[in-house]
Structures are given as structure tokens and as C-alpha cells.
Design a protein around this nucleic acid. Structure first.
Length: 625
RNA sequence: GCCGAUGUGGCUCAACGGUAGAGCAUCUGAUUUGUAAUCAGACGGUUGCAGGUUCGAAUCCUGUCAUCGGCUCCA
């Protein structure tokens, strides 16, 4: 597709994102939005827009908030602008000229935008509609475009502009008026900085075709259907209670049963993988947090201290110092290293009220935390071991697609150049040995060391940050940790932090959304429910349930007295993977009529046959039975 | 914390200045049932909390707590 719009000569040849027609569509749609807003609300100051994966947003400075009704009006005006089929005209400008023009217009945001454009970049502005007079460097052939439709010819020639690198569509009519929609209004800070003015951000989504828009909306509904907060309520898994406070999670019996399965699995795998398990307190003397540095660099995330007699105590926001204390409790030889200690450690962090979000962002949560103390030459192997364990655990939960980031030394950091180089290259080497592609986040590491972050992809393609491996040069120094080397000297160990689930709460939330509440048999809180057709079969059903329970299976009997149809409906709504109907026929033949939620009727099976099938599905962590 | 929206029985929602209702769930009774809702009755709410305006407040105002959509931050 060749653009007929005048373009600055120095504009870089189209990058991948510019070739994407969706980017042009969204950028143009955002400009049409801004034009519509300034038409309806002339006092509004337009700031800056950004394309997202699904659409765009534009930030406006306006005193009165936009209402949902305003959005409808703005949308209607946008459709009018699209119908008018106005050209998008690009003009290349001299910095001084546009500066003077903006100053005269009293547009402080535009001025800041102008000043933020690097000096070696061209300044371009895009008009919607034809400016009069036409700028000298604009191709006059644009004016030969078909005239605007009659609906727009009644008003004076509409014209709007903003600074923009482009590129755009040629004409507003190239937008499909049925393939975009304004979604919501939200507060956003100018320059993304809390200390700056708060603007109103209008979000929209825009696509090439109405079908694409529909597909996107279907995906949104699917995400809504899977929302762990709704499913957590509907399936009676957990709650967050007003009476207790925000961000504090109550695990109900069914959620607890699942968590127990997850924790048991986690402990077993760790013990098999050369880890020792720890339990440590949830609170400790503030001096410890002074030594660790948390009171200096992490204070804003910590709850206030608690006075205990004459001392100050601190609820823990992290587990690390406790593991260090155990290390410090006696002398360690180089022969003991690596030491791998893991704990399901509950921590408490002060999160601002507006940031809390279901299980994904809470104030009290349990990390599957581990600290590895090792020799410098062991770092690669240890990190590789962590990556292998991470893959094993995540894939057992059904997550096999990852996105890996390696974050390197930030501007402010502790530790020598040598040690940063050693650790960073050890992380790289481990990733290469693992064969995982990764993206380097330059300067994105913690101040105390480089790190690897792993995101997992869920069933509908969303990415979630869970696992992290971090090298730490800070705590060993602060706590003056050492081991006795082969020559009898005292040497500093390397400390590696890692978590695989990240937090049990968040991971559980991700599991709920990934499976949409249809958990694989090994995780399901109730694996099978026995449904007696009438009261006469209840006692038999109880006996059968007992047999299953003795095999460690989570089986229960529906004792509601409801009719079979209702019992099945109830079990389906509770997403119980297997139900077994027990009527007189089954009692007489000593069988169960099995109905699988995912795949339908299985017919009559004997109790040992059912146990066998369930056990196989559980052992293999199969989704289907 | 900031911007906006929202808080009504266990759940999903009605009532929007004039006596707080429905369905589901729960309980009781009848029915003894064969693969997604048997029938009937009953119980259940100082409308998140605290103030205020009004003859009268779920409804209007103020504060507060929480939730939702974002910002910022993050496991």
C-alpha cells in the first residue's frame, strides 16, 4: 500500500510496526477522537496518544470528567468525521516556527511534546482536514481527492492538527466506522508522573473490520467469564472480606483443598530436587530490617512497626533476612555449598488501596521463596537448575509457553563491576544452556543484582509474570556472610533468590483463569460426586464414597435429596469433573454410571475400574479423564 | 494514594424522596424421582459504615471503608 499523504523526507523507512495497518488505523482513530473531543468540548487541551495492543488511548486535560454519555456523543462525532472522509495531511516544520505558533496558542502540553522530540528528529504535524492556506510542502494533489460527503459540507471546513510522527491513514474515511468503539475513561498522570497534573484518558479499541472488533469483544467476554474473582465466589474457593480489610485473603475449604494439593506437590518436588525446607516467623525485631536495608529502601511497602515492650517489631515484607539468619547461625564450609533453602513464606506488604486486585495484588501473601547460597563458579549450574525446576513445575500445571527477560545492571546499584559481570554472564549462560530465547532489559535489574523474569502464557494467550531468579550481592555484604574456603580463608557466598509460583495467591488466581474453573482432576477440590437416584441408594453411595476416600480420592455424596436432573445441574455448575449416578440398576450390578464433565457419559463401570481411571488421570495430571 | 464509577437479604438483581421486592440458595412439608432446575409454604435486609438535609432518605449532601475500571507501583 503506497501512501499518498505527504511525508517528511527524513522519516525513517517504515519499521515493522508502521507496516502493520492496525497501527495506522489506531493512530488515525486516536486523532479523530481528539478532533471530536475538541469539537464538542472546545476548552479541552489535547495532550498525547498511544497505540496499544488492542487500540489506543488519548489523554485530555479537561476540568469536568467525561461521562459515559459524553463518550457516546464523542463516538457519534467521530463517525461524522469518518463519514466526512477528510484527508490527513502531514506537514514538516521548522522547530522555531512551530514553537512560536504553539506559544501563541497557549498550548503548554504541545510545547512540552515539542521539546521532548530529539533535536535530530524532524518535527511533523498531521492535519485532519485541509489547512488553509495549504502548507508549501504539502502535495496539492491531495485536494483532488473526492469531496467530502454532503453531511460535512454544511459546516465550515473542519480542520484539526497535532504533532505526530505518523504515519497515518490517507483519509478518515479509510477507518471503518463499525470497527472501533470507545471503551472507558480513566485518570492518568501527565508524563506518567504522579506529581504531575492528572488528565483524563479515553480508551478505545480499533480494528480493520467489524469482524475483528467482534472477535476482540468476544475475547474480552471470555476473559470476563474466567475472572478469578467471580469464579472464586461462584465456586466458593476464597473471599476477601470487608470486615477484615482489603487485600487479605480467606481461603475457603475448597480453595484450601486445592492449595494443599499445590503445596504438597511443591514440597515433594523441592525435596526431590535438593532443597531443604524452612519455617520462619512472620515478624521480627526492626533492627534486623535495618541491617538488611529494607527499612531504608523498602519502607514504603512495609506496614508500620509494632511496639513490643521496649522494642520495635516489623511484619515481614520478605523472607530473605530470615534465611540469612539461619545461615548465620553457624559456620559453613565451602564443601556444603550450594545450600538450597525453600519456604512457603507468608509476607505482608503495604499496597496502596487503589492497587489491590483480587488475588493478583494483595497485602498478605505466601511466596514459594527460596535462597541458594553458592560459590561464584556454581552460579550458572544453580540458575540452570532453577530454570529446569521452573519448567518442570510450570508444565505440570499446564503452562508450557514462556516469555523470558534478563534484566541487567541499573544506574544505581551496589557491588563491583567484576561481580556484576560474573553474575550477568552466568545468567546468560544458564539461559543459553537451557535453550530459552530471552529479551534483555538493559538496566532493568534490581540495585542488588541482575535477574531473570519468566512470564507464562495462559489458555487464552495472556501473559502473567510469576517466576523470578535474582542474584543478590547486597544481603551477603550487609550481613557479612561468609563460608570457609579450601585455604581456610573466609569468602563471601553468592546469594540467589528465586520463586516459581511467585505467590501462591497470584498463581492460584492464574490457575483459576487459565482453567476457567474447570480444573484438571489432580487439582479439583471435589474430584467426583456420587448422585443417588433416590433415597434407597444413599447408603450404598456412602459406602462407595468411603471406598474412594480410602484411596485418597476427593469424593462426596450429594445428600440434597434433589432429583437426578437437579443434582447433575448442581454438579455441573460447581464444575465437578466426574459424577457417578447410582440408581437401583447400579446397586444391583455393583457398578457406577460415570458422567464426565468434559466429555459426557462413560457408561457403567465397576468401582475398581473407576478408581483405576481416576488414579491414572491424577498421576499424569491429565486434563481429561 | 490519585481520577471516575459502584456498594440493597448468602448469591444475582429490582425499587431511584413516600409501606424495601423478585429469582436462586437456606429451612419445613409433600413427592422417591434415571443424566442441566418437582411442587407448596416459611425464614431472611436499621439498603457498607458514620453524620447531615427533609414531615419523610436505599434514593439528596458530607465524611469514611470497600469493590470495579484506569494511573502509579508490583509477587
Amino acid at each position: 500500500m503506497v501512501s499518498q499523504v505527504a511525508r517528511p523526507q527524513s522519516e525513517p523507512s517504515s519499521s515493522a510496526s508502521d507496516v502493520n495497518p492496525l497501527v495506522r488505523i489506531r493512530r488515525t482513530c486516536a486523532h479523530v477522537l481528539a478532533m471530536a473531543v475538541t469539537t464538542i468540548f472546545p476548552d479541552t487541551k489535547v495532550t498525547i496518544s498511544t497505540c496499544t495492543d488492542t487500540g489506543f488511548y488519548y489523554d485530555f486535560d479537561q476540568a469536568a470528567p467525561f461521562t459515559p454519555e459524553d463518550l457516546k456523543r464523542i463516538e457519534a462525532e467521530m463517525r461524522r468525521i469518518i463519514r466526512a472522509n477528510l484527508p490527513l495531511v502531514c506537514e514538516t516544520l521548522e522547530r522555531a516556527d512551530i514553537r512560536a505558533e504553539i506559544e501563541q496558542l497557549n498550548e503548554p502540553y504541545k510545547l512540552e511534546i515539542l521539546d521532548s522530540i530529539p533535536l535530530d528528529q524532524p518535527i511533523t504535524r498531521y492535519y485532519i482536514g485541509c489547512p488553509d492556506p495549504l502548507p508549501a510542502n504539502v502535495d496539492p494533489s491531495l485536494l483532488n481527492q473526492p469531496p467530502a460527503t454532503e453531511s460535512s459540507s454544511t459546516t465550515a471546513t473542519p480542520c484539526w492538527w497535532n504533532l505526530c510522527a505518523g504515519p497515518h491513514l490517507n483519509r478518515t474515511g479509510d477507518l471503518n466506522p463499525k470497527a472501533f468503539v470507545l471503551e472507558s475513561v480513566a485518570g492518568a498522570y501527565w508524563q506518567g508522573d504522579e506529581s504531575q497534573a492528572q488528565l483524563q484518558r479515553i480508551y478505545g479499541t480499533a480494528w480493520e473490520t467489524p469482524e475483528q472488533l467482534k472477535a476482540y469483544q468476544t475475547q474480552q467476554e471470555e476473559a470476563k467469564r474466567r475472572d478469578h474473582r467471580k469464579l472464586g465466589q461462584a465456586l466458593d474457593l476464597f473471599s476477601i472480606q470487608d470486615a477484615a480489610g482489603g487485600g487479605l485473603v480467606f481461603w475457603h475449604p475448597k480453595g484450601s483443598r486445592m492449595r494443599l494439593v499445590i503445596e504438597d506437590y511443591w514440597r515433594q518436588v523441592h525435596l526431590q530436587s535438593g532443597y531443604e525446607l524452612l519455617y520462619t516467623p512472620h515478624i521480627a525485631n526492626s533492627d534486623l530490617w535495618q541491617t538488611s536495608g529494607h527499612l531504608d529502601f523498602y519502607k514504603e511497602s512495609m506496614f508500620d512497626q509494632i511496639t513490643v515492650e521496649t522494642q520495635q517489631y516489623q511484619l515481614r515484607p520478605m523472607n530473605c533476612p530470615f534465611h540469612v539468619l539461619i545461615y548465620q547461625n553457624r559456620l559453613h564450609s565451602h564443601r556444603e555449598l550450594p545450600i538450597r533453602w525453600a519456604e512457603l513464606g507468608t509476607v505482608y506488604r503495604y499496597e496502596r488501596s487503589g492497587t489491590l486486585h483480587g488475588l493478583m495484588r494483595v497485602r498478605g501473601f505466601t511466596q514459594d521463596d527460596s535462597h541458594i547460597f553458592c560459590l561464584p563458579e556454581q552460579v550458572t549450574d544453580e540458575v540452570l537448575g532453577v530454570l529446569n525446576l521452573t519448567e518442570q513445575i510450570l508444565s505440570d500445571f499446564g503452562f508450557t509457553e514462556y516469555e523470558v527477560n534478563l534484566s541487567t545492571r541499573p544506574a544505581k546499584s551496589v557491588g563491583s563491576d567484576d561481580i556484576w559481570e560474573l553474575a550477568t554472564s552466568a545468567l546468560k549462560k544458564a539461559l543459553e544452556l537451557k535453550g530459552w530465547p530471552y529479551v534483555i532489559d538493559e538496566g532493568g535489574g534490581a540495585f542488588y543484582g541482575p535477574k531473570i523474569d519468566i512470564k507464562i502464557q495462559d489458555a487464552i494467550g495472556r501473559m502473567w509474570q510469576c517466576s523470578t531468579v535474582q542474584v543478590d550481592f547486597n544481603l551477603p555484604e550487609r550481613f557479612d556472610m561468609y563460608y570457609v574456603a579450601a585455604d581456610g580463608s573466609r569468602q563471601r557466598p553468592i546469594m540467589i533468590h528465586r520463586a516459581i509460583f511467585g505467590s501462591l495467591e497470584r498463581f492460584f488466581g492464574i490457575l483459576v483463569e487459565n482453567y476457567a474453573g474447570d480444573f484438571p482432576l489432580w487439582l479439583a477440590p471435589v474430584q467426583m460426586r456420587l448422585l443417588p437416584v433416590s433415597d434407597a441408594q444413599r447408603e450404598y453411595a456412602n459406602q462407595v464414597a468411603q471406598t474412594f476416600k480410602q484411596q485418597g480420592l476427593r469424593v462426596e455424596v450429594d445428600d440434597s435429596g434433589d432429583r437426578l436432573g437437579k443434582q447433575i445441574r448442581t454438579a455441573e455448575l460447581e464444575k465437578i469433573p466426574v459424577v457417578a449416578v447410582i440408581g437401583q440398576r447400579e446397586v444391583d450390578s455393583q457398578t457406577l454410571s460415570i458422567r464426565i464433565r468434559q466429555s459426557g457419559d462413560l457408561g457403567a463401570l465397576t468401582v475398581p475400574e473407576v478408581i483405576e481411571r481416576l488414579q491414572v488421570a491424577i498421576t499424569n495430571r491429565q486434563l481429561a479423564i
